[in-house]
């Protein structure tokens, strides 16, 4: 019989090697497969995307900016762009890069594929929003135009990705969100978030953590070069201006001015026996979850009473349109309500 100590050691070693190779997301096999995906085509496509982005901003891209964005050396970038020029995708003019019509079409397709995929991940899967961008960055290079069209059709031809960016349609047309940076609007004036920039990732993650989403109403309180103070989501938020510029808003007519401060009340704030009327389902609740809420009849105007708390302390049972439905606290926090002052009979 094999010595048990040796057997254990060998097995532990084998388990360790297997984990090292096949660990999801971080294993060597998956890393190797990913590194192979970063082919020249992928780099070229990313370059086109970058040039397009700069054209939209009205400040043409340069060799340096391409090299910087793609994390490649200047020589590599020069080679890449040379080949793109030979293929008639890019034209260079005094150091400024411009897209040819063909190049623009290619760039728009990549952008369309990216944003459609983000929409798909947001609406039809359970992936966390921190993962949308990275996954879409990989899939955008393998989605053929026909695939993108089929995906768009199955999603109901969405116009915007979950960050508020417009999705170009099959002909490459789109309407920009037309927002301005949060720092640029008038003080004490209601505005709606139309877009939250999802790059760089760390800044986006901070904004998401604050609970900011496209579609949300905000009101600027103070904007100095040092800090930006604003109301949103029923809370006062303070951001560094560099972060705040990643939020784009459009001003709303003054009449829309709701008392933003009262928005903090959600279903989760109801005590047993209290009732509230649904004001809205928060924008960050989307996809299947949102559809489920609506299927249950949780819509603006519905009156909901909190009736029981589980013996385990968490799900609370609510009386919704005569049915008793249990919702978890994190779900209840996505439903904004106005409290009815009189308690339920």
């Amino acid at each position: 019989m094999i010595d048990p100590l040796i057997a254990l050691l060998v097995a532990g070693l084998l388990a360790g090697i297997t984990a090292l190779l096949f660990w999801p997301e971080r294993g060597l096999v998956i890393r190797w497969r990913r590194s192979r995906q970063i082919s020249e085509r992928v780099l070229a496509e990313d370059a086109l995307k970058h040039i397009h982005e700069h054209e939209m901003k009205g400040q043409p891209a340069t060799l340096e900016s391409v090299a910087g964005t793609l994390h490649i050396s200047r020589d590599q970038a020069a080679q890449l762009l040379e080949r793109a020029e030979e293929n008639g995708l890019v034209s260079m003019d005094a150091g400024m890069l411009h897209l040819t019509p063909d190049g623009r079409n290619a760039a728009l397709h990549i952008i369309r594929a990216h944003r459609l995929w983000e929409r798909y991940l947001a609406d039809q899967t359970g992936y966390d929003e921190a993962q949308w961008h990275g996954q879409a960055d990989r899939i955008e290079h393998s989605l053929q135009p026909a695939d993108a069209d089929a995906l768009a059709a199955s999603l109901g031809n969405p116009t915007h990705d979950p960050h508020g960016d417009p999705i170009p349609d099959a002909t490459g047309q789109f309407v920009a969100h037309g927002g301005q940076p949060l720092t640029a609007i008038a003080l004490d004036h209601p505005a709606q978030i139309v877009h939250i920039e999802d790059e760089p990732e760390t800044i986006y993650a901070q904004l998401v953590a604050l609970g900011l989403y496209p579609g949300m109403t905000v009101r600027l309180i103070e904007a100095t070069p040092k800090r930006v103070r604003f109301w949103a989501n029923g809370d006062e938020h303070v951001l560094a201006p560099i972060l705040a510029t990643n939020i784009s808003v459009v001003p709303l007519p003054q009449t829309v001015a709701v008392a933003v401060e009262d928005d903090s009340e959600t279903l989760a704030d109801l005590k047993l026996g209290e009732r509230g009327e649904v004001k809205a389902i928060l924008p960050r609740c989307r996809g299947a979850e949102r559809r489920r809420f609506m299927d249950l009849g949780i819509l603006p105007g519905t009156v909901i009473a909190a009736e029981m708390i589980s013996a385990g302390g968490d799900p609370t049972a609510y009386r919704i349109r005569e049915a008793l439905i249990a919702l978890r606290s994190e779900q209840a926090r996505m439903i904004q309500i106005t409290r009815h002052t009189e308690t339920a009979a």
């Binding site: 039809q124 899967t125 359970g126 992936y127 966390d128 996809g287 299947a288 979850e289 489920r292 249950l296 029981m308 799900p315 049972a317 049915a323 008793l324 439905i325 249990a326 919702l327 978890r328 779900q331």
Partner: peptide
Amino acid sequence: LKGEVSTFSLEL
């Protein structure tokens, strides 16, 4: 399973 859709609801 993290990519699968998750929505909780429980009717009593």
